[in-house]
């Protein structure tokens, strides 16, 4: 493997212009996309037409796209994330208000999904077509055949309405203190986290199983086995390590979502996360919010994919990236 230091440095240097390029594309798409933030105002007969025109002028929306992009870029470089049309406050305040909830809910669901997918997938791969494998397979197919809007509703019907065990409206500011605070938070987090984790775990399990299955068949595993190594050691040392390459790829693809949120699930359980902020901003055509969220999201995409590339080298030292 070549010296990772120079490789990482080079990739980081490339990341800057690529981010700039992505930001230009994002901005152009948003500027050209149909819809406008003051639709409500224009269609309301009680509001004179020039109010919307004034607002457009005030927020500089009638300037050419290039001018608006440069204005956004210079502001962003100075740490100014923009100003929301819909809420008339700074975008970073809006995002910070929702960041912790998003990290908590989406983050724990991803961890949970990984904790399910890795052991189940590997165990199923070591015994292909066994009873365990078949059951796990069937469950995973059900898992990704059913969309989250459906499983979410199913959980609500069972656990909130039939059994009355769990609340289904998420509240980020619970007034209780001490243990009760944690208990209440735990109770309301169970359903959104499970819905997301099960959906994610279903597909990850399939990938892990398939990756492990591929590796188990490769020559060197057979060699290791024939050398008389214990099955457990073979699995842990050779199979898991190599099977992790696709898993690392997938996890890196999925991790930015911890920031981006999960739109459908947040909507169902009313989790005040960044996903629901994004969707309401999109529906209200609140471009500064959309731009800020997607831009941070793309920063994360780039850095996690870079991280994945570095991890490949560590998982399989023969991989050389130059």
């Amino acid at each position: 493997m070549t010296l990772p230091g120079t490789y990482v440095l080079r990739r980081l240097l490339i990341a800057l212009p690529s981010l700039l390029g992505i930001s230009i594309v994002l901005f152009t798409v948003l500027a050209l996309a149909p819809g406008d933030p003051f639709g409500d105002i224009v269609s309301n007969p009680n509001i004179p037409a020039d109010v919307a025109a004034n607002l457009r002028l005030k927020f500089g929306m009638d300037d050419p796209v290039a001018v608006r992009y440069l204005r956004w870029l210079t502001a962003m470089l100075q740490g100014d994330w923009g100003f929301s049309f819909a809420s008339r406050i700074d975008v970073d305040t809006l995002i910070m208000q929702r960041l912790w909830t998003t990290l908590l809910v989406i983050g724990s669901s991803q961890v949970l999904a990984l904790l399910i997918a890795l052991p189940v997938g590997i165990y199923a791969a070591t015994r292909p077509y066994s009873l365990f494998d078949q059951v796990a397979n069937t469950l995973t197919f059900i898992g990704f055949s059913l969309p989250t809007f459906f499983t979410g509703l199913l959980l609500i019907l069972v656990f909130s309405i039939q059994l009355d065990w769990l609340p289904f409206v998420y509240r980020s500011d619970i007034s209780a203190t001490g243990w009760r605070f944690f208990w209440e938070h735990f109770r309301q987090t169970i359903m959104p986290v499970s819905v997301l984790a099960l959906f994610q775990a279903a597909s990850w399990t399939r990938y892990v199983r398939s990756a492990a299955l591929d590796v188990i068949r490769l020559d060197y595993v057979t060699t290791a086995r024939s050398k008389g190594l214990k099955e457990r050691v073979v699995i842990m040392k050779h199979v898991v390590r190599n099977a992790l390459i696709p898993v690392v790829t997938l996890v890196a693809l999925q991790l930015p979502a911890i920031f981006g949120g999960a739109i459908v699930t947040e909507q169902i359980f009313r989790v005040p996360g960044i996903g629901s902020l994004l969707i309401s901003a999109i529906l209200a055509n609140d471009t500064p919010v959309i731009m800020a969220v997607t831009f941070v999201f793309s920063c994360l995409v780039i850095s996690f994919n870079l991280l994945a590339d570095i991890l490949y080298g560590w998982l399989d030292p023969r991989i050389s990236l130059r």
Binding site: L26, V29, P256, I282, I290, S298, V301, N305
Partner: peptide, 15 residues
């Protein structure tokens, strides 16, 4: 690939 991963799908679809 990173670019396509970052694109906000809803506004792009509307476009």
């Amino acid at each position: 690939t990173d670019l396509f991963l970052s694109l906000p799908q809803l506004p792009l679809l509307l476009l």
